[in-house]
Design a protein around this nucleic acid. Structure first.
Lengths: 248, 248
DNA sequence: CGGGGGGTTGATCTCCTTCAATCAACGTGG
DNA sequence: CCACGTTGATTGAAGGAGATCAACCCCCCG
């Protein structure tokens, strides 16, 4: 049961915060109207499972607000996060009946869902949707490949720095730079989730974050609130080219 | 310069070995004709670079025969393979001008290339191409995510077993099972390329292959020719569910 | 014959995991 | 209000999987 404090979201596409970035981004008014007919909102509390790998999936949808993760689990319990879903990201695969991964809400989550079969039909008749979905899927593929470099070749310290860079960059548009020019954000993940993301143990994550703090690369208030005094320095620590990005 | 032994491939789509699996898989005769107008074949020798990351890319295309790799490199030289391109796989991203990865031929390679701008135009007018490309991209994304689990959470031995399983499975359709039911194939990669694939060093690759041989999981003739007496055993070693696959 | 590319094997080192104790923040019930 | 349990995080000590450095082999080719 959701708590009473959750705001009553408008489901009007015109007021939708992800209107211009989600699968529906390129849709015209009439196309939007047809999507509207098959859509419904769903809410999940932090920690709740959206769907289990292998489960029948009768919807696809977009993250409207909050954060969700895609994870894979081996029989012996080892888990690896394979996707981090932020607002506007798409969940589900047209043409597939069962979920391929566990999807979990890591914060309170609102999703705009479409019944799968009608969505598939509509997609086949609406190039604007298919085009946008292709574009988004190609972006995700690039992100996954970037991530493969992180997982395969970076040290624990570089992995942490990479993750912090990604989070900082991802909501850079929305986000806060303090008056002094520092980059400031909250970690949306627990240490354990970060470990699952990076292929590490939560202890190593904790140690490396402490190390980055001691070395002045980041500052922490509480466990989650991060300040980056020098973004270039953080990018160097990540082993990335320290240029060309939003923060150059 | 290509050697004289390379066969003179027909460029007739009707005789194309990847006709039913590549981007053009769903095309009707007339659509195929239009693709034919903007296509040309290119050949590369084993070891040759198809394109460097960052280079201008004025074509996209399909692998017709041979194997290519997608790799990413850090400034200090660490490299990670992020894609393995087999016949029918697609190279390049519509809408992007520069290559995002190094593409290298690991065997002699034949590609069916399309001039990029005309291809993009055609794609926008031909849902059959866009649909197929979406499907292929989603498959690649799944493969990349599978790979992330391998990179992030598996041991060196499991990584090798996983790679062998993938190779065995990938050309299972084409491939050879000996009279005794053994699965038999040739490794298309050097030890170093395997290491770049798996986020290991080539020494570790060599050791783990030797270990699997000593333990009877695989048999080797020469360095590259592999026999798998018991596919289920190999899948167990890979840490995968030992069922549901082609070899079940 | 020499040389080089690809591969194997050995010895040592190190970074990360594993196991474990401790802590802070928070909620709950007596 | 305080004891208690829980959850998320930090820190320490010990061990191990894989990296690193190095020697050597095999085979092909000029």
């Amino acid at each position: 049961m959701l708590n009473d404090r959750s705001p009553a979201f408008s489901q009007d596409c015109n007021e939708c915060p992800i209107r211009h970035r989600a699968v529906c981004a390129r849709c015209e008014t009439d196309e939007l109207a047809r999507l509207d007919e098959i859509k419904y909102y769903r809410r999940f509390e932090a920690g709740q499972t959206v769907i289990w790998s292998g489960d029948r999936m009768d919807f696809v949808g977009s993250v409207v607000s909050g954060i969700a993760t895609l994870t894979q689990t081996m029989e012996d319990g080892r888990t690896q996060m394979v996707g981090l879903l932020l607002p506007s990201d798409f969940v589900g695969r047209p043409g597939r009946n069962a979920a391929a991964y566990d999807v979990t809400a890591t914060t309170d989550l609102v999703m705009c869902c479409f019944r799968k079969t009608p969505f598939e039909d509509l997609m086949n008749r609406t190039p604007h949707i298919a085009q946008r979905l292709l574009e988004m899927t190609l972006d995700e593929l690039d992100a996954a490949r970037e991530w493969m470099l992180v997982l395969g070749r970076k040290t624990a310290r570089e992995k942490i720095a990479s993750l912090l860079s990604i989070i900082a960059r991802r909501d850079a548009s929305i986000n806060l730079r303090s008056a002094t020019g520092d980059v400031v954000f909250d970690l949306p993940l627990t240490r354990e989730a970060m470990a699952d993301y990076l292929g590490l143990t939560l202890e190593t994550v904790s140690r490396q974050i402490s190390a980055l703090r001691k070395d002045g690369v980041i500052a922490l208030e509480g466990k989650r609130h991060v300040t980056v005094p020098d973004m270039t320095r953080l990018l160097e620590e990540a082993g990335d080219d320290a240029d060309g990005g939003v923060f150059a």
